[in-house]
Structures are given as C-alpha cells and as structure tokens.
C-alpha cells in the first residue's frame, strides 16, 4: 500500500487537521508515514501545502516527486490547481468549490470550474454548505476529508477513530458534528465517483 497526497489550501484554513486525521488513521493501521508541513512566512494568508505520504514500506523522501501524487485534497478551488504538476496521470483531485478570495486578481469562478472540469478525475463539493447542514461551517475541512476517504485506502473505522481522537477534548457534540461532516463528504464522493 502506498498513497502520496498533496494537501492544499490557504494559510489558516486548517489543512493540517486533515493531515492529522489521515496521519492518526495511518498510525492505527501501522503504516509508515511522512508529512512535510509548511510553517512560517507563507502562513499569513498565502498558499500552503503539505506533502503526506503513507506506505506499508519505509518511506525515503519527505517530499513527493512530481507526477507521483495519487491525490490532491484541496479546501479551496484555485489552490487545487496549483499543484497539478505533482499529480499522477491517474490521480484524483478532491476539492471544495468555496473560493477564498484575498487577492485582487482572483479568477472568475466559472473559468475556475471549467479548468477543474477539464481534469479526468475529480470530486468537487460545496463543503461550506454541507458543513453548515451538519451543524457548523467550521467542519468544512472535515467534509473535504470525508470526500477523500474513498481514495485513501484506509479503513473507514480508522478514520472515524482518528476524528474522535482529534476532537475528543472539545466534547461529544463536536465529535459527533465532525463525524457527521466526514460521512456527508464521503457519501457525496461515492455518488460523484
């Protein structure tokens, strides 16, 4: 088993909690794991990404070679396209369609979606409204995580226990909400695949 994943978003959008969930789930399945994070300068509203590698064999490089990523998981549509050179020709993009507009020349949504629709394999989702339906817009990143779960090669039960673990300090209600968000994302992806 080997999955190379690029997580993409804008500084402050919480891609690291997605990474943490996948990481915990991978640990539960005793997989090897390497996760290169971005800290510092680029966190101030800049583009951020994380390289997450899971494997049943030891992993050499912390960085994924170009053209080798199995998945791009993005919490922002323009950011989902920034790392296309990293994506394997058979890879999938899973992205939220909710734009984070903090630059004057942000592209038109319509053009952006057209670019995404050109790709051979993608899942798009309105993570913000799906999260709202589950109880809080804050769970949007967990909806995106949920949409990625059919592609991760991990047991759904490991993902769920990772979510429980990550949020357990915040009380049962928050745990339930996030589990619901993950399930909503997953159901959506299974339908769109």
């Amino acid at each position: 088993m080997k999955k190379d994943i690029i997580l993409a978003g804008v500084g402050g959008q919480g891609i690291l909690s997605i990474a943490a969930c996948i990481g915990l789930a991978a640990l539960e399945e005793s997989l090897y794991l390497k996760q290169a994070e971005v800290h510092g300068m680029s966190q101030r509203g800049g583009a951020v990404q994380s390289n997450l590698r899971l494997s049943s064999d030891p992993i050499a490089s912390d960085l994924i070679p170009t053209g080798k990523a199995d998945l791009i998981i993005a919490v922002e549509p323009m950011e989902s396209l920034r790392y296309l050179p990293m994506l394997d020709p058979n890879g999938w993009i899973i992205t939220s369609i909710n734009p984070f507009i903090n630059i004057p020349d942000y592209p038109e949504m319509e053009d952006l979606m057209k670019e995404i629709w050109k790709l051979p394999r993608y899942i798009t989702l309105d993570a913000n409204s799906m999260a709202k339906d589950c109880g809080s817009i804050k769970a949007a990143n967990m909806v995106v995580l949920g949409a990625a779960t059919p592609f991760l090669g991990l047991e759904q039960s490991s993902i769920e226990s990772a979510v429980k673990n990550l949020f357990k300090n915040k009380g049962d209600e928050i745990v339930e909400l996030n589990l619901k968000a993950v399930q909503a994302g997953r159901d959506h992806a299974l339908k769109q695949m």
């Binding site: 804008v10 500084g11 300068m41 680029s42 966190q43 101030r44 509203g45 800049g46 583009a47 070679p65 170009t66 053209g67 080798k68 990523a69 323009m78 950011e79 396209l81 920034r82 790392y83 296309l84 050179p85 990293m86 994506l87 394997d88 020709p89 890879g91 903090n102 630059i103 020349d105 942000y106 592209p107 053009d111 952006l112 670019e115 790709l119």
Partner: peptide, 15 residues
C-alpha cells in the same frame, strides 16, 4: 513524470 501544467488562471497568493 510531470503532471499537467498549472493553468494560467492560477494566480500567486503572496503572504
């Protein structure tokens, strides 16, 4: 390998 190119409409997002 190189995946596909970054589309032109992707703009820089400086910090």
């Amino acid at each position: 390998l190189q995946g596909s190119a970054v589309p032109d409409l992707v703009k820089n997002r400086p910090p």
